[in-house]
Design a protein around this nucleic acid. Structure first.
Length: 435
DNA sequence: GGTTGTTTACTTTTTA
DNA sequence: TAAAAAGTAAACAACC
């Protein structure tokens, strides 16, 4: 039987209560029960630790995160975002000398952030109630954030977990539940591609990356709900066919998948080849200078799919490592942050007929392209402002626990639980208000 | 044995 | 209000 429900909005067992009162309840202290490992240790291979996180592309919350990091050094020292009354670590974090960090390029933000922080402290009688509220981002968004903020544009599952927990204290609790959902999202959504490990990088699990065509998933301007799910057309057709055919293939009705695994989604070998061809076509047809290397015997079928299509995880399975890395040369440089992956992805985005960096002022693509703390922080502010203006799709639904602040809370309520995010985002937000 | 990955089934939430 | 998207639970198997 299926799950017992308990969805996002309901008072599900894992939902942090947004009601007033104690911040206890399901929201445990990040320290208690937290198995979070130091960011610098766990993510050093994937993130730019030499500069802390300041080299990261910054989605909304990341922007402010980098600011703190710049001020106080490795985020690992300031990773308690709890906002618990036991002492806001952010106080020490943001209370430091403004702009003292090399990466901090906006002292105004920091100064006003400190002021805001003090104000938030004064208001914490009700702010505190919303600490650890569920972030307004979907799991798909969180995964996307994590991947896009990694240097190699791909992460292992555990790294994705870590990223999310580092960024959102909410996810330091009930890990089994949301991590299951993360895994489900990765498998279920065509926008995520599984990239097998290479022999020289042994370890558990594969890398996960974004489908090159998934760049416009968040056209609504932020890492919130997508307007439309990204689907690989061919895979969708196959799904329909399989539905129509019943159990045409060896695929049983049971949930076991790994038995047929890498080709589970294909049900037959042919489709896997199609995917490989699609991958080759995607890169070859658009911009990939390496594509010639990708045309191995597995890619010789000569089918011209024409469209940018599926490069699903099975690609790697049906290709050897060299073939795959012909498609994604950056895989060779996962730890050393070869820019080609970014170049490829960026190039792919540009070739996407739907992609237009200027299409939406608050597009996720703008954040990616900007690669700037200020730009990302501005985006947070813009999101919040849009939300306040009732802009659909911006920020969370009023029903959302994220957007259920106290009567006097503005749209920044959520960010108050995330002190780092709160500072930069709120300061910008308020500066936009005051002008 | 724990983690990872896939799939199904169901509920809840959001959007058109 | 229906459809789509998202969230949750669970079963299962492969892998390290």
């Amino acid at each position: 039987m299926g799950g017992s429900g308990g969805g996002l909005g309901g008072p599900g067992p894992g939902m942090a209560p947004v009601t007033g009162g104690s911040s206890a309840g399901p929201c445990m202290s990040p320290a208690a029960g937290s198995t979070v490992t130091p960011l610098s240790a766990s993510m050093s291979n994937s993130f730019n630790t030499s500069q802390g996180l300041s080299g990261m592309t910054s989605p909304p919350c990341m922007a402010s995160m980098t600011s703190l990091n710049s001020i106080n050094g490795p985020l690992a020292n300031n990773r308690d975002f709890s906002g618990h009354s036991g002492g806001l670590p952010l106080n020490s974090g943001l209370g430091g000398p403004a702009g003292s960090g090399p990466g901090l390029n906006n002292t105004t933000i920091t100064d006003s952030a400190s002021a805001l922080l003090q104000r938030a402290r004064a208001d914490k009688t009700y702010r505190r109630s919303y600490t650890h509220a569920k972030p307004p981002y979907s799991y798909i968004s969180l995964i996307t954030m994590a991947i896009q903020n990694s240097q190699a544009k791909m992460l292992t599952l555990s790294e994705i977990y870590q990223f999310i927990m580092d960024l959102f204290p909410y996810y330091r609790q009930n890990q089994q539940r949301w991590q299951n959902s993360i895994r489900h999202s990765l498998s279920f959504n065509d926008c995520f591609l599984k990239v097998p490990r290479t022999p020289d990088k042994p370890g558990k699990g594969s890398f996960w990356t974004l489908h090159p065509d998934s760049g416009n998933m968040f056209e609504n301007g932020c890492y919130l709900r997508r307007q439309k799910r990204f689907k690989c057309e061919k895979r969708e057709i196959l799904r329909q066919q399989q539905k129509a055919n019943g159990n045409h293939s060896s695929n049983s009705s049971s949930g076991s998948s790994s038995a047929n695994s890498p080709s589970v989604k294909h049900q037959d070998g042919h489709q896997s080849h199609q995917d490989v061809n699609s991958a080759a076509n995607t890169l070859n047809g658009s911009m990939d200078p390496y594509s010639s290397h990708a045309h191995s015997h597995h890619l010789q079928r000569g089918e011209s799919l024409g469209d940018s299509d599926c490069i699903k995880s099975e690609v790697g399975h049906h290709m050897d490592a060299h073939q795959l890395h012909g498609l994604y040369p950056a895989l060779h440089h996962h730890a050393s942050s070869h820019p080609s992956m970014q170049h490829i992805l960026a190039g792919q985005l540009k070739t996407d007929p739907h992609f237009n960096p200027s299409h939406h002022p608050f597009s996720i693509n703008s954040i990616i392209a900007a690669n700037s703390e200020a730009a990302a922080a501005s985006k947070v502010a813009a999101d919040m402002k849009l939300y306040e203006m009732g802009y659909p799709g911006a920020y969370a639904s009023p029903i959302s626990p994220m957007a259920a602040p106290g009567p006097n809370d503005g749209p920044t309520a959520y960010y108050h639980h995330h002190p780092v995010a709160a500072s930069a985002a709120a300061s910008i937000y308020h500066s936009t208000q005051s002008v």
